[in-house]
Amino acid sequence: MISQDKLNRINELARKSKQEGLSLKEQKEQKELRQEYLDNVRSSFRNQLNSVKVVDEEGTDVTPEKLKKEKAQRGLH
Rank of each mutant, 00 (worst) to 15 (best):
V55I: 15
N47V: 08
Q4S: 12
I10C: 11
L49Y: 05
R74C: 09
R34Y: 13
Q73K: 12
A14F: 05
G75C: 04
R42A: 08
R46L: 15
M1V: 02
K69T: 14
F45V: 15
Q48Y: 09
K69F: 08
E36G: 08
Q19K: 07
D5F: 03
Q48E: 11
D56H: 05
V62L: 03
E65C: 00
D56K: 02
D39L: 04
L33D: 00
E32V: 08
S43N: 13
L24S: 14
E58Q: 11
L49G: 00
K18H: 11
E70D: 08
S23N: 08
S43F: 10
K31L: 10
S3F: 11
S17P: 01
K71W: 04
Q35C: 01
K18R: 14
R9D: 06
K28G: 09
E26M: 02
K16M: 14
A72H: 09
R15D: 13
L38R: 06
E57I: 15
K68R: 13
G21C: 02
D5V: 05
V41A: 09
E58R: 10
V62F: 03
H77N: 04
L33F: 00
S43D: 09
L7W: 08
R15F: 06
R46A: 13
R34N: 11
K25D: 12
L13M: 08
L33S: 00
L13A: 10
M1C: 03
K6C: 05
E12F: 13
Q19E: 10
G59Q: 02
S44Y: 10
K69G: 08
K6I: 08
K25F: 05
R34I: 15
E36Y: 02
L67N: 02
K71D: 01
N50H: 04
Q48I: 13
V54I: 15
K28C: 05
L13W: 07
V54N: 00
Q35G: 09
L76T: 10
K28Y: 10
R34C: 07
V54R: 04
K69M: 09
A14P: 06
V54P: 02
Q19V: 14
Q35L: 13
D61G: 12
E65M: 07
V41E: 08
I2Y: 01
E26I: 05
E26L: 06
R46Y: 13
I2G: 03
